[in-house]
Amino acid sequence: MTTIWAGLSVGGIYAIAALGYNLVFVAAGVFNFAQAQMVMVGTFMAYVGAVKIHMPLVLVPLFAAAVGFALGFVCERVAIAPVAGRGGHAVLVTTLGVAILLDGVMSQIFGANPLSVPFYGSNQITTFLGGRAAPSDFTLMVLPIVIATVIYLFNTRTLTGRAALASAEDRFAARLRGVNTARLAWLSAAAGGALAGLCGVVVAQTTYAVSDLGDLLAIKAFLVLALGGFGSEVGAVIGGFLVGLIEAESTRYLNASYSDLILFGFLLVVLLLRPSGVFVRHRVRRV
């Protein structure tokens, strides 16, 4: 049971990262590679806020979210908008550039060693249903479900959300119907950044603040999306937990070195058999 809790909490992190990618993918139709790096930046902002400048703990998530919002906005303006519509993986390459840049800058500022970030709640390991886990682990299990629900409700209940769904279906038609797709693009990138920053504070409890977290999360989030299907909130949550469980179980029964290899094999099999995702019902049209 302890392994399952560990798997679910790690999976929660992956699901959070995947939901961030989904958010931008649905509203703007792009895969913003740097999305996972914003979570990484969020962990450092949690460190800065809580440890360096001793911010009131309530303000730390807001601070991290604000930084994420700004980063997401800048990233969209600098790296995504100028190359929108250009072929040859232009957006993927420019956002990869941003990701590498963030990686480099953060490791330059904070060093390569992981920095511990204290959690507000107790660090007391508790036993729940026969498995042992820290309170932050349980937060990580619940958080993606909350986020997915919020995104789902937002997308189906609000006008902006519906516009995002419409533009995922057909950007050109959405624009003809008066949807401001340019605004939607930067807004979703900034919202994705804010979400990543906010979650970075929680993630940091488990992963610590470390600069290469983003690259790892980018891979795992992609794996989750390949499983769950791009654009599907439910798929991202289930996929995230599944990937976390596979990782935790293979680490326990084999060795940590094998877990990524097994996940990679898993990914290849999924792509071979169900290239559009295992849990996906309808596919977001690639325009």
Partner: peptide, 12 residues
């Protein structure tokens, strides 16, 4: 990493 990131971004 910073330099490579700038090269990839600006180059593209």
């Amino acid at each position: 990493l910073t330099i490579y990131g700038v090269l990839v971004l600006v180059g593209a």
